[in-house]
Nucleic acid binder design. Structure first.
Lengths: 148, 148
DNA sequence: TTCGTAGTTGCGACTCAGTTGCAACAAGGA
DNA sequence: TCCTTGTTGCAACTGAGTCGCAACTACGAA
């Protein structure tokens, strides 16, 4: 089942305001990049796009803002290690956990929500007496267009 | 009856020899470290331990050997991002995929094999027409001793 | 509207993991 | 023993991310 992607633009700004967090020019630029992203971006891609909005944005401000959003639980950090071996990618956190599937040939990332995944997490919590805070499943392989 | 978890020391050496790959002093040192490790090690820990065997081993040789073992499919690379935010860890690849659960408080890594996980992978392959090469599930949370 | 201040910024210098080019070296087959 | 090819240590480099600091600014209070 595909994810519903539509969100009100400016939602992240609102969420930060609700928490009494200061809004600044660089922050607005970075948030708008994250909100309007059509794919997963890493820190340097976010920096480059944010500079189209506000040319003075600094690398360290991007990292600090990503930190802030992580601490506030508004974005998730992914590895997508299968894709190009390295790098952290960021995405808006929507309600449900989902699985990331990276095609090793064309690089496409597919997201997937699964009841079985939810069941697996419940099983882990029960069988291992483990309280899950975060669960990330990353899959590498070949998508339907690239499989051979 | 105890589980047959023990491995003959030198097994990695044998596997490389079977593939006609040259054996050298530094390589032997690094392989023995990986084979006798009681927990997941990162590259710098492997370097430190390998130097106890052969003091001249270089950082770059460790990375090159880890690359070799990855390419040969003899080790897996993990992120364990939940544990300390960074770093790649390595482990012998045994037959079965397993889940890594990292306790955010005590740092313990628990491994878990699950039929539900296997079912989830089958479901992904079927529903998304995706050919899975590798699937990594990393869970962060609190273990039974640390939960609150 | 102005003011004060705590939070934020850009900057530059730094750390740390990992990579690379290269000349010297050595494994292992002939 | 020799030869070839793969491997090594080294040193220099890259790229991601961090940090201390002085200058700046958002925004609530006056």
């Amino acid at each position: 089942m595909p994810l519903p992607q539509t969100e009100i633009p400016g939602r992240l700004q609102t969420q930060l305001a609700e928490r009494g967090i200061r809004m600044t020019g660089p922050r607005r630029a970075i948030l708008s990049v994250i909100e309007t992203a059509s794919k997963h971006l890493d820190a340097s891609q976010i920096l480059r796009k944010a500079r189209n909005v506000d040319a003075s944005v600094d690398r360290s401000t991007v990292y600090r803002t990503l930190d802030l959003l992580k601490r506030q639980g508004l974005i998730d950090e992914l590895d997508l290690m299968h894709l190009n071996g390295e790098g952290h990618y960021y995405e808006r956190k929507l309600g449900r956990d989902h699985i990331h599937m990276a095609c090793l040939r064309c690089g496409k990332i597919t997201e997937f929500v699964s009841k079985t995944f939810e069941a697996l997490k419940k099983q882990l919590e029960r069988d291992c007496q483990f309280h899950i805070v975060v669960a990330r499943l990353e899959v590498g392989g070949y998508c339907s267009a690239c499989r051979h």
